[in-house]
């Protein structure tokens, strides 16, 4: 059976795992709570910002030989990915400020930013 020392270590292991998962859950919750509708679509790649488009105008931007960013009905998604894996296409469309879809092979990041906070004050 396990020695006392081993049991102590396993308890510590479990504590570490719990701590990391808790941290992760807190981050997710914080992001969820703070989310607000976006206004802009920012496309970044290795050189810097490639393009900034408004979220509420339907558009389609093809990044030559890599992928196509589609803005439709206030959401953004990716099609036409030229990499072998195409993980970016599998992501669901994004529309909240702070959300993003990234493409690791081509080093492209498509994020939704801008927009005011979620609530307006009526005067």
């Amino acid at each position: 059976m396990l020695s006392e020392n081993q049991k102590k270590r396993l308890r510590a292991d479990f504590a570490v795992l719990a701590a990391v998962l808790l941290l992760s859950a807190l981050m997710l919750a914080a992001a969820r709570l703070r989310r607000s509708p976006g206004a802009l679509v920012v496309i970044e790649e290795k050189g810097g910002t490639a393009a900034v488009l408004p979220l509420y105008e339907d558009a389609s931007l093809e990044l030559e030989g890599r992928l196509t960013v589609v803005i439709e009905n206030g959401s953004v998604y990716i099609t036409g990915a030229c990499c072998p894996d195409r993980f970016c296409q599998a992501s669901s469309p994004i529309k909240y400020s702070g959300e993003s879809i990234i493409c690791l092979p081509f080093g492209i990041s498509v994020s939704v930013t801008g927009g005011e906070g979620g609530y307006d004050f009526l005067v």
């Binding site: 990391v20 859950a25 970044e44 290795k46």
Partner: peptide, 15 residues
């Protein structure tokens, strides 16, 4: 490499 967008995945990746 590609900007702050990458952090969006971090909570899931950490877990």
């Amino acid at each position: 490499l590609m900007g702050r967008g990458a952090f969006g995945y971090y909570p899931m990746l950490l877990a």
